[in-house]
Amino acid sequence: MYFTFLGTGAGVPAKLRNTASMVLTMPEYQGDAWMFDCGEATQHQILHTSVKLSKIKKIFITHLHGDHIYGLPGVLGSRSFQGGDDQLTVFGPKGIKDFIEMSLSISSTYLKYPLEIIEIDEDGVIYEDKYFKVSAKELEHGITCYGYRIEEKDQPGTLLVDRLKAEGIMPGPIYREFKEKAAVTLPNGRTLNSSDYIGPDKKGRKIAVLGDTRICQAAVDLAEGVDVLIHESTFSHGMEEKAYDYFHSTSSQAAQTAKAANAAALILTHISSRFQEDDHLLLEEAREIFSPVYLAKDFWTYKID
């Protein structure tokens, strides 16, 4: 699976960075994609990438500031125009339902697919299926704002075909029994433990995507032990007071959160336009505290092995 960053700026669009949006594409799950935030012109940004609107099955909105939602009506409409016909689910804070329904109603936009809107009103698990669990936790921002923790569940290991063949067991329906049963009895009456013929479980990956936030314990909780933490970096080191006043974080604070959470990697995004020419300073500041750190740019992709 991999992230495609569609917008990595803060507040308003800039020449080098559009407003906030990113997509998690999962080739190992039929190519399904999940979008996180949808700032103005997100659908235009998608045109420069391999992201397909019809493959987006879920959209997670962190909060209702314009730079995180103004592109949403356009994306929803274009997904319909481009042939998307299966259900799309939007998660977000209270108010996201009114925003979407009013925008679509006033613009007479008809969707050809079922749209489910789930408003989050408390911390906890907001989605779970056979493969994933997604949790939300409120962060510290000027309005209600959530961070998301995506946990891929551990998957059964691979069937050790060579070992089965060495036992004289050739491919066939019996292979499925080794995947589904604790023990398998062969036609000759011999019983084998399935675990001896299945590799170790594949450990699920863990990701934290935070909305706008001050440095806070909730951010650390969401990022605990993740493979990658995606964290805003609106301000630079030395601007902590301004960051606090505006409910944002500095590059150093993002790194402190990653370190406290024992994250495996940190990606900085939501970069203020004041750093258009020297955004590398944010990266250097964060690297003094934590490593590895990456600085997201529009259209950049990051693979999670």
Rank of each mutant, 00 (worst) to 15 (best):
Phe3Val: 04
Thr4Asn: 14
Phe5Arg: 07
Leu6Ala: 08
Ala10Val: 09
Pro13Asn: 11
Ala14Ile: 09
Ala14Leu: 05
Lys15Arg: 11
Asn18Gly: 01
Ala20Ser: 12
Glu28Tyr: 03
Ser50Cys: 00
Leu53Trp: 12
His63Trp: 08
Leu64Tyr: 06
Gly71Trp: 10
Phe81Ala: 12
Gln82Ile: 06
Gly84Pro: 02
Thr89Leu: 07
Val90Trp: 00
Val90His: 01
Pro93Gln: 10
Ile96Trp: 06
Ile96Pro: 09
Met102Asp: 15
Ser108Pro: 11
Thr109Gln: 10
Leu111Thr: 03
Lys112Asp: 10
Pro114Cys: 07
Phe132Cys: 02
Phe132Lys: 01
Thr144Ile: 06
Cys145Leu: 14
Tyr148Ile: 09
Pro156Met: 12
Leu160Val: 03
Arg163Lys: 14
Tyr175Phe: 13
Lys181Phe: 09
Lys181Trp: 13
Ala183Phe: 08
Leu186Met: 01
Ser195Gly: 10
Ser195Gln: 11
Ile207Gln: 03
Asp227Met: 12
Leu229Glu: 05
Ile230Glu: 01
Met239Glu: 15
Met239Gly: 02
Tyr244His: 15
Ser249Phe: 00
Ser251Gln: 03
Ser251Val: 04
Ala255Arg: 10
Gln256Leu: 14
Lys259Tyr: 09
Ala264Pro: 09
Ala265Ser: 12
Ile271Ala: 02
Ser273Pro: 13
Asp278Met: 08
Leu283Phe: 02
Glu285Trp: 02
Phe290Tyr: 15
Tyr294Met: 13
Asp298Thr: 03
Phe299Ser: 07
Asp305Gly: 01
